[in-house]
């Protein structure tokens, strides 16, 4: 939406569907992450570096939490379930791996706090960051409960891509400079290409035309991408089969054993990423 639209309809952006919020979507891109299949191998993360011109910041800055991994894999060691007699001596059930990318919240907490409307919701249901508009206040990143926004504290062009590494840079999106906030876009450049290709051939966009870099590379196909508005998409069916719905702060499932959940949905962020629970043999 244009700035004017954002300003005119400001309050709508804070509301979810149920409250009559902005629902004039053309698409609503979403994802599903199957933690039963994810091995935490990190391929998605490096694929994202390759696709999205993510800067390598180096050891010192990484230590300060300035790494730019739009797609990151978190690893948790779960506390042993003492009641079930689990070992306190070893992590007997391995680790819990959690790939985290921007959750593309429909009621994104990052959007209303931007003083210059550099972050907003697109008609594709994406939480957009307009780099050239960003002034680097960092309010958005402070307001993101998932910590999925990354700030360029420095200019990394020279240090991250010494020649000829810069020849690998993807021309379909900018290299962000110092003072700019950046984040996962669900590979919006690939969405653009798919739309342009479809329009060139006077065809409608078909489910499966778009594959973000992380989804493409996943060795276990734990990630699924698609349009949540298109009820026929593989993703929509997956959400439906796990009884996860948008616009809720709590899922009321007929079958409470279904694995689908959204991280922090109780915060009313209405994320577009569904996780499927990890499974363990008792």
């Amino acid at each position: 939406m244009s700035l004017q639209n954002v300003l005119t309809n400001w309050s709508q952006y804070r509301k979810t569907h149920e409250d009559g919020g902005f629902y004039d979507y053309e698409h609503m891109w979403g994802m599903s992450v199957d933690l039963n299949k994810c091995t935490g191998c990190n391929a998605c993360s490096v694929a994202c570096y390759a696709e999205n011109n993510l800067a390598v910041v180096g050891k010192e800055k990484f230590d300060k939490g300035q790494g730019m991994h739009w797609m990151r894999v978190e690893r948790y060691w779960d506390e042993p379930d003492l009641a079930a007699g689990e070992s306190t001596e070893f992590s007997e059930h391995g680790g819990s791996f959690l790939p985290m990318m921007c959750q593309q919240c429909n009621a994104a907490t990052c959007e209303p706090v931007c003083p210059v409307a550099a972050t907003y919701h697109t008609p594709d249901g994406l939480n957009a960051q307009v780099y050239n508009r960003c002034i680097g206040s960092r309010y958005c990143s402070n307001n993101c409960p998932y910590r999925l926004r990354y700030f360029n504290f420095y200019s990394y062009y020279e240090s991250s891509w010494p020649e000829p590494l810069n020849m690998q840079l993807n021309p379909d999106l900018s290299v962000r400079d110092k003072g700019v906030m950046e984040k996962c876009t669900f590979c919006v450049q690939r969405i653009r290409v798919a739309k342009d290709t479809a329009s060139r051939e006077n065809q409608a966009l078909v489910d499966g035309d778009i594959t973000p870099a992380c989804v493409q590379t996943c060795p276990t196909k734990a990630l699924v991408f698609g349009d949540l508005i298109n009820t026929e998409s593989k993703l929509s069916k997956l959400w439906a089969s796990h009884e996860v719905e948008l616009g809720k702060t709590e899922q009321h499932k007929k079958n409470k054993e279904k694995r689908g959940y959204r991280v922090f949905e109780e915060l009313n962020t209405d994320p577009c990423v569904m996780y499927l629970e990890r499974v363990k043999e008792v």
């Binding site: 039963n36 948790y76 959690l98 054993e257 694995r259 991280v263 629970e277 990890r278 499974v279 363990k280």
Partner: peptide
Amino acid sequence: LAATITAEVF
């Protein structure tokens, strides 16, 4: 964050 269920349920 990374929730877990049992294989039996799955």
